[in-house]
Amino acid sequence: AEKQKAQFHAQIHEFNELCWDKCVDKPGAKIDSRTETCITNCVERFIDVSLLITNRFAQMLQKGGEMH
């Protein structure tokens, strides 16, 4: 459980860096709704992309044998 928690936090840091760079231009006095939407979508779509890639990779391994 400790290890899982550490992994969860590492993921948050990774997502946060990626989506901060994508969505925050100049940090303002408050977080505006556009930035908020951008960050939420960014995290959701990044998870979609990771799943898409992981599944497609698994399929390729099954069909075509090993990579190296």
Binding site: K22, N41, D48, S50, I53
Partner: peptide
């Protein structure tokens, strides 16, 4: 490999993240 691929391809393909892919 999967982690790096996800990052690099997300950056190349998703310029404005929307409500779905």
């Amino acid at each position: 490999l999967l982690t790096k691929m996800s990052e690099k391809c997300f950056k190349k393909c998703i310029s404005k993240p929307g409500t779905s892919l």
